[in-house]
Structure formats: C-alpha cells, structure tokens
C-alpha cells in the first residue's frame, strides 16, 4: 500500500524567482553572475534556460536547488522561501556525479535511504521502478565505470526521480554525450516528464535541445547575467529534434541569442 502511495505523482511545484542578484569574487575580479533576475515557472512546466557561458543560468539553477544563496531578491517554491537543498527539488549535473563505490542500484537507493518512512523492501522496489522507467532494470548490479555516458545519465535521472521530487533541476545533463545518445534521451525525458509531471528547469547552451524539450525557452546574456527574452514553444509533443518546425524556432532563438550577446559585448569597454 505504502509503495503505491510512494509512487504516486506529487503535485509539481510552482517556482518563483524575484529580483535575484548574485556576485562572485574570483581572484581579483568580481563576476556579476545574476543581475536582478525575475522568473515565474508554473506547475509542471518545462523551462529551458539558454545562454552563453557566464550568463548565470547555472548559478540560478544552483540557487533554486538551494546549493547557493542569493545576494539579493528571493526564490521560493510553492510560496515557501528556498534556503537549503530539499528533497522536493532534485538536481542532475553535467557529469553524472554517480558514486563509484556503489553499484547502480546502490546509487538510486542513496537518496531513498535519506527519505523517512520507507522499509528496506519498499526502497528497493521504488529504486527498481525508476531503473525500469529509464530502461536500465537489467543493470542494477553493474558498476558505474562499466556504463556508457548515456547510461550513466539515465542512472542519474533515476536517482534524481527516485525520492519523488516535485521539481527536477537539470544542469546541462546531456552536454557531454554524443548526438545519437542525446536524441534517445530527449525522447525518454519527454516520455518520463509526461508520465511523472515534474516541474523541470533545464540549463543548456544548445538552442535546439532547449526548443525540443521546453514549453518555454528563457534567453540569458552574460556580464552581468540577465534575462533578455522568452519564447513559448508551441509545438506538439513528443517533439523530434530534427523536425522542420523545431528548426524554425531554433533559428529565431539563435539569432536573438547572437544579437543579445554581441550587443552586450560592445559597450563593456
């Protein structure tokens, strides 16, 4: 019984970023990572943050995760201020960050061990459920180093989904993968998102990827990190990254991205 309730989808959370600023000191230089950024993300929305390196998109993701504090402004999930990491917001990184001392099942179980109210059998059942969801149920005893890059990110996805969060934060999770593996994962991620209804914030610098996955694409520009423009992607799902309609969107967004970045670099002298 508890297992069924555990596997139920919790309602996805609404995220609200208001007037957030963040500065870093790196050596003698100060980096203005985020400058008065505001963003509302609806329940179950899939939002992609796009921009060149240094535009603060990953910083914003870390702030939403609770891994970093803001210098000003506030971030909240369902109206509650975010000040520390929480189980309802899980994060996936560019490197899989899987733990090499655990096997695949052990990795997926890691977050479940920290979730109270589950028996051992239930935890294992939950972990297996998510491994099946990402298509790796046959690899639960495999070691991390034996997996391909794509499989590692699938395990990382299962690990992030296992504690049943309301928000999934993804920091360029497919950046290091080859094109073919990436395309498979786009399909899987859309299917899983449709099934599990999470609010997803997805950081990437690949415009096509953003258009393929996002309900909305938010464009950032660097120095200081600001939101420049937003695009609602009104395409039916599941989307194929190679479709012509998708290419049309990404051409437009890429042009806008170049425009903002170029415009931004000139007057900085």
């Amino acid at each position: 019984m508890t297992l069924d309730t555990e596997l139920l989808n919790p309602p996805p959370a609404k995220l609200s970023v208001r007037d957030v600023s963040k500065r870093f000191v790196s050596g003698a230089r100060e980096i203005h990572a985020l400058d008065h950024v505001s963003l509302e993300i609806g329940e179950g929305e899939f939002v992609c943050l796009v921009g060149p390196s240094g535009c603060g998109k990953s910083t914003l993701l870390n702030i939403i995760a609770g891994l970093e504090r803001t210098d000003g402004g506030d971030v909240s999930a369902e109206g509650a201020a975010i000040s520390a990491p929480g189980r309802e917001r899980m994060m996936m990184f560019q490197e899989s960050a899987l733990f090499p001392w655990l096997d695949v099942l052990g990795n997926v179980l890691f977050g479940l061990h920290l979730k109270p109210g589950l028996t051992k059998t239930e935890r294992v059942a939950v972990a297996r459920h998510y491994l099946k969801l990402v298509g790796l149920e046959k690899f639960e005893r495999a070691n991390v180093h034996e997996l391909s890059g794509g499989m590692k990110q699938r395990v990382a996805l299962a690990r992030a989904l296992a504690p049943n969060p309301r928000v999934l934060l993804m920091d360029e999770p497919f950046g290091a993968l080859d094109a073919l593996t990436r395309e498979q994962l786009y399909g899987d991620l859309q299917r899983i998102w449709a099934e599990r209804r999470k609010t997803i914030v997805f950081v990437t610098h690949n415009v096509r990827e953003a258009v393929c996955l996002g309900d909305r694409v938010v464009l950032f520009s660097p120095h200081p990190g600001r939101i420049r423009e937003e695009f609602v992607i009104d395409l039916p799902r599941p989307r194929d990254i190679n479709s012509v309609e998708l290419a049309r969107y990404s051409t437009r967004i890429t042009a806008a991205l170049k425009n903002h970045t170029a415009h931004n670099e000139e007057p900085s002298e």
Binding site: P85, M91, F110
Partner: peptide
Amino acid sequence: VPPIYARAALTMGS
C-alpha cells in the same frame, strides 16, 4: 574527492 559528489549528496538530503 570531487566536490560534485558532496553537492549531489547534499541535494539528496545528506
């Protein structure tokens, strides 16, 4: 230890 391990663990509530 790569810092990302501790960060990943932190997001999972460790």
